[in-house]
């Protein structure tokens, strides 16, 4: 808890050193990505469900708020209730039937779901087709203010995820991850527990999508590809030594590294991949010697 507050305070001093919009923007991007990872951590880290289409909820959040804000000239904050409803509904529609099956099927269905959402957004008129939606009003226009907004929201999202993990529900998620049959035999309705993880994770993802829409003011299907889902999953897997701190660091790493490698446009993702492998190996060795 103390360490978390210290880290929060340390990050909060960033605008003291620089108010370069580029740096603050990158920090906000990293923050949004950390929030996404916190959401996926509920699903994958706690509950052990493999979700390969998490970007779908990111997209649903971003599009719901973007469409409502631009069509009805609403401030972005006013779209939050609708975003909550949309993500919960999507979570139930996808998770409801799928989570009755063994966990392996979820990976396939979520993979498909991610693509369906992206392709649907590309085809529909209301989502602006391939060009997407632009002119989304920001939550905060000033880069410093937006940076702090992202920082606070992400901190709340992380705290929320961590607290859920230390509750009855969070323990039930971990029972399911550890041994689903034993959890069921102990009287835990594993179906309901898994659905709760999936729906809560999607709410986190949807709210991160609202921040994303606010940051870019324009969204298009290109932001919600399988690569995005895969990167969030990479962050969770890389960071999940079964605690949420690792996920924060890993998510920041995954979000910022490709940006820092912009100087090498051709080899960017190649270098990123190599770095990922190196980090994974180092982490593995540290754990092995610990």
């Amino acid at each position: 808890m103390k360490r978390a507050l210290l880290a929060f305070a340390a990050v909060a001093t960033l605008p003291v050193f620089t108010i370069s919009p580029y740096v603050l923007n990158m920090a906000a991007t990293a923050g949004i990505f950390v929030m996404l990872a916190a959401g996926l951590y509920i699903v994958v880290g706690y509950c052990g469900l493999l979700d390969l289409g998490f970007a779908a909820f990111f997209a649903i959040g971003a599009y719901t708020s973007g469409i409502l804000a631009t069509r009805f000239e609403l401030p972005l904050v006013a779209t939050l209730p609708a975003v909550l409803c949309a993500t919960v509904l999507a979570g139930i529609v996808i998770g409801g039937p799928t989570l009755r099956l063994r966990s392996d099927y979820l990976a396939i269905v979520t993979l498909g779901f991610g693509e369906i959402v992206r392709v649907t957004a590309t085809r529909l008129e209301i989502t602006g087709g391939p060009t997407g939606i632009y002119g989304i009003p920001p939550l905060a226009a000033d880069p410093v203010a937006f940076f702090y907004l992202v920082l606070v929201v992400t901190a709340l999202a992380l705290t929320g995820a961590a607290r859920l993990g230390r509750s009855k529900l969070g323990r039930a998620w971990q029972y399911v991850r550890e041994d689903e049959d034993a959890a069921e035999a102990t009287g835990i309705s594993t179906y309901r527990v898994k659905l709760a993880a999936y729906v809560l994770g999607s709410v986190w993802g949807g709210l991160a999508g609202v921040l994303f829409a606010s940051q870019l003011s324009a969204i298009s299907p290109a932001s919600f590809t399988f690569l995005q889902s895969a990167l969030v999953l990479v962050a969770v897997v890389l960071g999940a030594a079964r605690n949420i701190t690792g996920v924060i660091l890993a998510a920041a790493f995954v979000a910022v590294t490709p940006e820092l490698l912009r100087a090498f446009p051709d080899a960017r993702y190649f270098l990123f991949g190599v770095l990922l492998v190196v980090v994974m190996l180092l982490r593995h060795r540290r754990r092995a010697t610990a």
């Binding site: 323990r171 971990q174 550890e178 041994d179 049959d181 034993a182 959890a183 035999a185």
Partner: peptide, 10 residues
Amino acid sequence: FQNLRLFPAM
């Protein structure tokens, strides 16, 4: 269970 079924990491 016949062969213990605990939640090992917990």
